[in-house]
Design a protein around this nucleic acid. Structure first.
Lengths: 153, 153
DNA sequence: TTAAAACCTCAAGTTAACTTAAGGTCAACA
DNA sequence: TGTTGACCTTAAGTTAACTTGAGGTTTTAA
């Protein structure tokens, strides 16, 4: 049995192990901890140790980010998970529900935007008086409080 | 006839006018200019003047941003517009086509993500050995080069 | 037991996309 | 003709989400 397998079974994960398994850097885990998104305890030598469910947490954080949710919002939502016990299926389900709705909204927004792009940006009405694209009340109002997609490469 | 109407007709827009009409700040227009996204010439008193099509350009920039396209990418795409003449319907159409495809991709990505969130984050398989969420090759691979949505409030 | 690998903290750096500030010039209108 | 509002430039500040570096300690494995 390797050390890592042992660690896994003992449910007592090192930061390096969590980093490798979750696909984020050690520095990111440190960072998430300072932001209150994940938690750890320390061993005798002051090194971080994690419960296995941190992996799910990180996965959820990443998924939520990919949906366009900020770390701050994610933190808020993760805070609704139980503090004392390990989250159950039901707990994670509730999170999923919250973000589902947001995601639906964003998809709808993008679809409206696509129509707009198709219908308006490519349209022939280059006159400033007539083209709705020139009217920010009509056009940008939607975008103002909408979503922004970014590449994270 | 107001001064602004006059300006419009003379096709010789001030930065303040463009800012108001396009819904961005004057500093943003300055910024876009330094980034090569829009252009202006100067009057005798060294003040910026714009052609009316700058309004469409800014609108297009905003729309593209809302689709998750970075300013750098937008710049690349805008560079395909003709330099010498005012862009026509056809020119803008071509841009629209390029971004349509990207937008479609992103929407599809989000939809996959939603399924994933629904099926996986909320699922019961909290075991690290079995749940695909713990396997970054299977799960995070998609996200790695995917999109990130942010609020821009 | 000892050297390398992994870990620690804290401060500073990074990128995108802007915004704000300071200090000065120009233009519009009463 | 003055004064207020619009502009100008340049530099520095801002926010999110991390990353990098320096200098030092702990663990692991041969």
């Amino acid at each position: 049995m390797t050390v890592q397998q042992k660690k896994l079974i003992e449910a007592n994960l090192t930061v390096g192990f969590v980093a490798k398994r979750s696909g984020v850097k050690v520095s990111t885990l440190h960072f998430y901890e300072t932001k209150g998104l994940i938690r750890s305890w320390r061993n005798n030598g002051n090194q971080r140790r994690y419960k296995p469910d941190v992996l799910r947490r990180v996965a959820v954080i990443k998924a939520a980010q990919a949906m366009g949710i900020t770390l701050e919002e994610i933190k808020q939502t993760l805070a609704t998970l139980p503090d004392e016990r390990t989250p159950t299926k039901k707990d994670w389900s509730a999170l999923s529900k919250q973000w589902q709705a947001q995601l639906d909204e964003r998809i709808a927004f993008m679809q409206r935007l696509r129509e707009r792009v198709d219908g308006c940006i490519g349209c022939g009405c280059l006159s400033m008086d007539k083209c709705p694209i020139y009217n920010k009340d009509d056009y940008l109002g939607d975008i103002q409080n909408g979503a922004v997609l970014l590449n994270n490469n």
